[in-house]
Protein backbone atom coordinates (compact mmCIF):
# COMPACT_ATOMS: atom_id res chain seq x y z
CA UNK A 1 0.00 0.00 0.00
CA UNK A 2 2.68 2.42 1.02
CA UNK A 3 4.73 1.41 -1.96
CA UNK A 4 1.83 1.95 -4.30
CA UNK A 5 1.07 5.43 -3.08
CA UNK A 6 4.74 6.26 -3.38
CA UNK A 7 4.71 5.11 -6.95
CA UNK A 8 1.72 7.26 -7.79
CA UNK A 9 3.30 10.26 -6.18
CA UNK A 10 6.52 9.63 -8.01
CA UNK A 11 4.77 9.34 -11.37
CA UNK A 12 2.89 12.53 -10.87
CA UNK A 13 5.99 14.37 -9.90
CA UNK A 14 7.88 13.02 -12.87
CA UNK A 15 5.11 14.11 -15.16
CA UNK A 16 5.52 17.66 -13.99
CA UNK A 17 8.93 17.52 -15.55
CA UNK A 18 10.85 18.15 -12.36
CA UNK A 19 13.29 15.90 -10.66
CA UNK A 20 12.27 16.03 -7.04
CA UNK A 21 14.84 14.88 -4.53
CA UNK A 22 11.89 14.69 -2.24
CA UNK A 23 10.78 11.31 -3.52
CA UNK A 24 14.13 9.73 -2.89
CA UNK A 25 14.08 10.90 0.65
CA UNK A 26 10.67 9.35 1.31
CA UNK A 27 11.93 5.93 0.38
CA UNK A 28 14.63 6.20 3.00
CA UNK A 29 12.26 6.78 5.83
CA UNK A 30 11.82 4.33 8.65
CA UNK A 31 8.49 2.44 8.54
CA UNK A 32 6.72 4.51 11.19
CA UNK A 33 7.35 7.62 9.15
CA UNK A 34 5.95 6.01 6.07
CA UNK A 35 2.73 5.32 7.94
CA UNK A 36 2.42 8.86 9.09
CA UNK A 37 3.18 9.92 5.58
CA UNK A 38 0.29 7.85 4.29
CA UNK A 39 -2.13 9.49 6.67
CA UNK A 40 -1.17 12.89 5.50
CA UNK A 41 -0.93 11.84 1.90
CA UNK A 42 -4.01 13.71 0.76
CA UNK A 43 -2.74 16.97 2.12
CA UNK A 44 0.70 16.27 0.83
CA UNK A 45 -0.42 15.51 -2.68
CA UNK A 46 -2.46 18.67 -2.90
CA UNK A 47 0.35 20.74 -1.53
CA UNK A 48 2.84 19.21 -3.88
CA UNK A 49 0.73 19.55 -6.96
CA UNK A 50 -0.18 23.12 -6.13
CA UNK A 51 3.48 23.83 -5.58
CA UNK A 52 4.18 22.21 -8.98
CA UNK A 53 7.13 20.48 -7.43
CA UNK A 54 9.45 23.38 -6.95
CA UNK A 55 12.70 21.76 -5.90
CA UNK A 56 13.78 22.88 -2.51
CA UNK A 57 17.40 22.66 -1.55
CA UNK A 58 19.26 23.22 1.63
CA UNK A 59 21.63 26.10 1.28
CA UNK A 60 24.56 26.31 3.63
CA UNK A 61 25.93 29.51 5.13
CA UNK A 62 29.25 28.94 6.82
CA UNK A 63 30.15 30.82 9.96
CA UNK A 64 33.73 31.93 9.66
CA UNK A 65 34.25 33.15 13.20
CA UNK A 66 36.57 31.22 15.49
CA UNK A 67 37.49 28.58 12.97
CA UNK A 68 40.63 27.51 14.81
CA UNK A 69 40.07 26.60 18.40
CA UNK A 70 43.31 26.56 20.44
CA UNK A 71 43.95 23.32 22.27
CA UNK A 72 45.78 24.82 25.23
CA UNK A 73 46.25 24.52 28.97
CA UNK A 74 42.85 26.05 29.69
CA UNK A 75 41.35 22.73 28.58
CA UNK A 76 41.46 19.91 31.10
CA UNK A 77 42.73 16.64 29.74
CA UNK A 78 39.99 14.03 29.50
CA UNK A 79 40.71 11.56 32.34
CA UNK A 80 39.56 8.48 30.43
CA UNK A 81 41.72 9.35 27.44
CA UNK A 82 44.62 10.00 29.80
CA UNK A 83 44.11 6.54 31.28
CA UNK A 84 44.47 5.00 27.82
CA UNK A 85 47.64 6.97 27.15
CA UNK A 86 49.25 6.39 30.55
CA UNK A 87 50.80 2.92 30.04
CA UNK A 88 52.17 3.95 26.63
CA UNK A 89 53.58 7.16 28.04
CA UNK A 90 55.31 5.34 30.87
CA UNK A 91 57.24 3.17 28.43
CA UNK A 92 58.10 6.10 26.19
CA UNK A 93 59.26 8.24 29.12
CA UNK A 94 61.56 5.56 30.44
CA UNK A 95 63.31 5.16 27.13
CA UNK A 96 63.35 8.82 26.21
CA UNK A 97 64.55 10.38 29.43
CA UNK A 98 67.98 8.78 29.34
CA UNK A 99 70.56 11.58 29.16
CA UNK A 100 73.23 10.79 26.59
CA UNK A 101 75.13 14.03 26.08
CA UNK A 102 75.60 17.71 26.81
CA UNK A 103 75.48 20.65 24.38
CA UNK A 104 77.01 23.96 25.55
CA UNK A 105 74.95 25.71 22.87
CA UNK A 106 71.75 24.74 21.07
CA UNK A 107 72.31 23.32 17.58
CA UNK A 108 69.87 24.93 15.17
CA UNK A 109 69.17 25.23 11.46
CA UNK A 110 69.97 28.05 9.04
CA UNK A 111 70.39 28.69 5.32
CA UNK A 112 73.22 26.88 3.48
CA UNK A 113 75.04 25.68 6.59
CA UNK A 114 74.23 25.59 10.28
CA UNK A 115 75.41 24.00 13.51
CA UNK A 116 72.73 21.34 13.25
CA UNK A 117 73.29 20.75 9.53
CA UNK A 118 77.08 20.49 9.93
CA UNK A 119 76.71 18.19 12.94
CA UNK A 120 74.46 15.79 11.06
CA UNK A 121 76.33 15.66 7.75
CA UNK A 122 79.65 15.14 9.57
CA UNK A 123 78.35 12.33 11.75
CA UNK A 124 76.78 10.66 8.73
CA UNK A 125 80.31 10.23 7.34
CA UNK A 126 81.88 9.41 10.71
CA UNK A 127 79.34 6.71 11.57
CA UNK A 128 79.02 5.22 8.08
CA UNK A 129 82.70 5.05 7.23
CA UNK A 130 83.57 2.06 9.46
CA UNK A 131 80.57 0.07 8.18
CA UNK A 132 81.04 1.03 4.54
CA UNK A 133 84.77 0.39 4.63
CA UNK A 134 85.63 2.66 1.70
CA UNK A 135 86.12 6.42 1.55
CA UNK A 136 82.95 8.55 1.54
CA UNK A 137 83.51 11.89 -0.19
CA UNK A 138 80.30 13.77 0.51
CA UNK A 139 77.39 13.85 2.93
CA UNK A 140 73.98 15.43 2.48
CA UNK A 141 70.90 16.22 4.52
CA UNK A 142 68.08 18.74 4.21
CA UNK A 143 66.68 21.16 6.76
CA UNK A 144 63.22 19.72 6.23
CA UNK A 145 64.37 16.32 7.44
CA UNK A 146 65.85 17.74 10.65
CA UNK A 147 62.60 18.17 12.53
CA UNK A 148 63.71 19.96 15.71
CA UNK A 149 66.93 21.65 16.88
CA UNK A 150 69.07 20.00 19.55
CA UNK A 151 68.58 22.00 22.76
CA UNK A 152 71.22 23.62 24.89
CA UNK A 153 72.19 21.60 27.97
CA UNK A 154 71.52 17.94 28.58
CA UNK A 155 70.54 15.94 25.53
CA UNK A 156 68.41 12.85 26.02
CA UNK A 157 67.22 10.13 23.71
CA UNK A 158 63.90 11.97 23.28
CA UNK A 159 65.66 15.02 21.83
CA UNK A 160 67.23 12.85 19.15
CA UNK A 161 63.86 11.30 18.33
CA UNK A 162 62.42 14.81 17.99
CA UNK A 163 65.28 15.74 15.67
CA UNK A 164 64.99 12.57 13.58
CA UNK A 165 61.66 10.80 14.08
CA UNK A 166 61.83 9.00 10.75
CA UNK A 167 63.03 5.46 10.27
CA UNK A 168 65.38 6.61 7.54
CA UNK A 169 68.33 4.43 6.64
CA UNK A 170 71.73 5.68 5.58
CA UNK A 171 72.81 4.81 2.04
CA UNK A 172 75.96 5.52 0.07
CA UNK A 173 75.38 6.68 -3.50
CA UNK A 174 77.94 6.81 -6.25
CA UNK A 175 77.37 9.90 -8.40
CA UNK A 176 79.02 10.98 -11.59
CA UNK A 177 80.44 14.47 -11.90
CA UNK A 178 77.47 16.03 -13.67
CA UNK A 179 75.11 14.75 -10.99
CA UNK A 180 77.37 16.18 -8.28
CA UNK A 181 77.26 19.52 -10.12
CA UNK A 182 73.45 19.34 -10.12
CA UNK A 183 73.51 18.65 -6.41
CA UNK A 184 75.55 21.78 -5.70
CA UNK A 185 73.27 23.79 -8.00
CA UNK A 186 70.35 22.50 -5.93
CA UNK A 187 72.07 23.37 -2.63
CA UNK A 188 72.61 26.94 -3.79
CA UNK A 189 69.13 27.33 -5.20
CA UNK A 190 67.24 25.83 -2.24
CA UNK A 191 69.58 26.95 0.57
CA UNK A 192 68.21 24.11 2.70
CA UNK A 193 70.71 21.35 1.90
CA UNK A 194 73.75 21.15 4.19
CA UNK A 195 76.62 19.31 2.47
CA UNK A 196 79.52 17.70 4.31
CA UNK A 197 82.99 16.97 2.90
CA UNK A 198 82.96 20.02 0.64
CA UNK A 199 83.24 23.79 0.54
CA UNK A 200 81.89 26.19 -2.06
CA UNK A 201 81.23 29.81 -2.81
CA UNK A 202 77.88 31.22 -3.89
CA UNK A 203 78.36 33.76 -6.62
CA UNK A 204 75.52 35.24 -8.69
CA UNK A 205 73.25 32.44 -7.53
CA UNK A 206 75.64 29.71 -8.70
CA UNK A 207 78.09 27.46 -6.86
CA UNK A 208 81.70 28.24 -7.67
CA UNK A 209 85.08 27.18 -6.31
CA UNK A 210 83.69 23.79 -5.23
CA UNK A 211 86.23 21.76 -3.26
CA UNK A 212 85.62 18.17 -2.26
CA UNK A 213 87.94 16.75 0.39
CA UNK A 214 90.01 19.90 -0.05
CA UNK A 215 90.55 19.21 -3.77
CA UNK A 216 88.91 21.16 -6.60
CA UNK A 217 85.77 19.43 -7.88
CA UNK A 218 86.51 17.39 -11.00
CA UNK A 219 83.42 16.96 -13.21
CA UNK A 220 85.07 13.97 -14.89
CA UNK A 221 85.26 12.05 -11.60
CA UNK A 222 82.70 10.01 -9.66
CA UNK A 223 82.09 10.74 -5.99
CA UNK A 224 80.47 8.84 -3.14
CA UNK A 225 77.76 10.51 -1.05
CA UNK A 226 76.14 9.36 2.18
CA UNK A 227 72.57 10.43 2.80
CA UNK A 228 69.24 9.01 3.89
CA UNK A 229 67.33 6.54 1.77
CA UNK A 230 64.52 9.10 1.72
CA UNK A 231 66.62 11.76 0.00
CA UNK A 232 68.33 9.15 -2.18
CA UNK A 233 64.88 8.23 -3.52
CA UNK A 234 64.36 11.79 -4.74
CA UNK A 235 62.77 13.21 -1.59
CA UNK A 236 62.75 17.00 -1.12
CA UNK A 237 63.02 17.39 -4.92
CA UNK A 238 66.46 15.77 -4.99
CA UNK A 239 65.58 14.04 -8.24
CA UNK A 240 69.16 14.06 -9.49
CA UNK A 241 70.07 11.53 -6.80
CA UNK A 242 67.97 8.95 -8.62
CA UNK A 243 70.70 9.01 -11.28
CA UNK A 244 73.15 7.41 -8.85
CA UNK A 245 75.22 4.77 -10.61
CA UNK A 246 75.34 2.70 -7.43
CA UNK A 247 73.28 2.63 -4.21
CA UNK A 248 74.63 0.76 -1.20
CA UNK A 249 72.95 0.42 2.18
CA UNK A 250 75.12 1.25 5.17
CA UNK A 251 72.98 -0.86 7.50
CA UNK A 252 72.32 1.94 9.99
CA UNK A 253 69.31 4.13 10.70
CA UNK A 254 70.11 7.84 10.60
CA UNK A 255 68.65 8.27 14.09
CA UNK A 256 70.81 5.46 15.44
CA UNK A 257 73.82 7.13 13.85
CA UNK A 258 73.00 10.36 15.69
CA UNK A 259 72.47 8.54 19.00
CA UNK A 260 75.74 6.66 18.52
CA UNK A 261 77.68 9.83 17.73
CA UNK A 262 76.42 11.61 20.84
CA UNK A 263 77.09 8.58 23.05
CA UNK A 264 80.64 8.30 21.67
CA UNK A 265 81.31 12.01 22.24
CA UNK A 266 80.11 11.69 25.83
CA UNK A 267 82.16 8.54 26.39
CA UNK A 268 85.21 10.47 25.17
CA UNK A 269 84.39 13.31 27.58
CA UNK A 270 83.46 15.69 24.75
CA UNK A 271 80.46 18.01 24.47
CA UNK A 272 78.02 17.96 21.56
CA UNK A 273 79.16 20.77 19.28
CA UNK A 274 79.23 21.36 15.55
CA UNK A 275 82.21 22.13 13.38
CA UNK A 276 82.03 25.86 12.86
CA UNK A 277 84.53 26.23 10.02
CA UNK A 278 82.86 28.07 7.20
CA UNK A 279 81.87 25.74 4.36
CA UNK A 280 79.80 28.06 2.27
CA UNK A 281 80.90 31.55 1.34
CA UNK A 282 78.13 33.74 0.00
CA UNK A 283 79.38 36.63 -2.11
CA UNK A 284 77.15 39.69 -2.18
Amino acid sequence: MVNNTRLVLQLRLRRSGEDCTFVDKLSNRPPHMKIRFRKSLGVALVALLVGACQPLAWQASPSLANTDVPVDSTITADPQTEAVIAPYRRQVTEKMSEVIGFAPEALGKAEYESPLGNFVVDLQIAQSQPLYGKPIDLSLTTNGGLRQPLPKGEINVGDVFELMPFENELVVLTLDGSTVQELFDYAVEKKWAPIGGATYTVKNGKPTDIKIGGQPFDPAKSYTLVTSDYLAGGGDDLNMLKKATKTEKVGLLLRDAILQQIRQLTAAGQPVTADTDSRVTVLP
Binding site: Q54, P55, L56, A57, A60, S61, P62, V71
Partner: peptide, 17 residues
Protein backbone atom coordinates in the same frame (compact mmCIF):
# COMPACT_ATOMS: atom_id res chain seq x y z
CA UNK B 1 46.68 19.21 17.01
CA UNK B 2 47.64 22.65 18.27
CA UNK B 3 44.29 23.92 17.03
CA UNK B 4 41.03 22.15 16.37
CA UNK B 5 39.42 23.42 13.19
CA UNK B 6 35.75 24.30 13.41
CA UNK B 7 33.32 25.50 10.79
CA UNK B 8 29.60 25.71 11.43
CA UNK B 9 27.28 25.58 8.47
CA UNK B 10 23.76 26.81 8.96
CA UNK B 11 21.41 25.29 6.43
CA UNK B 12 18.26 27.06 5.40
CA UNK B 13 15.68 25.66 3.10
CA UNK B 14 15.63 27.76 -0.03
CA UNK B 15 13.86 27.48 -3.32
CA UNK B 16 16.59 26.39 -5.66
CA UNK B 17 15.07 28.20 -8.59
Amino acid sequence: GIFLGRIDFTFNKKNRQ
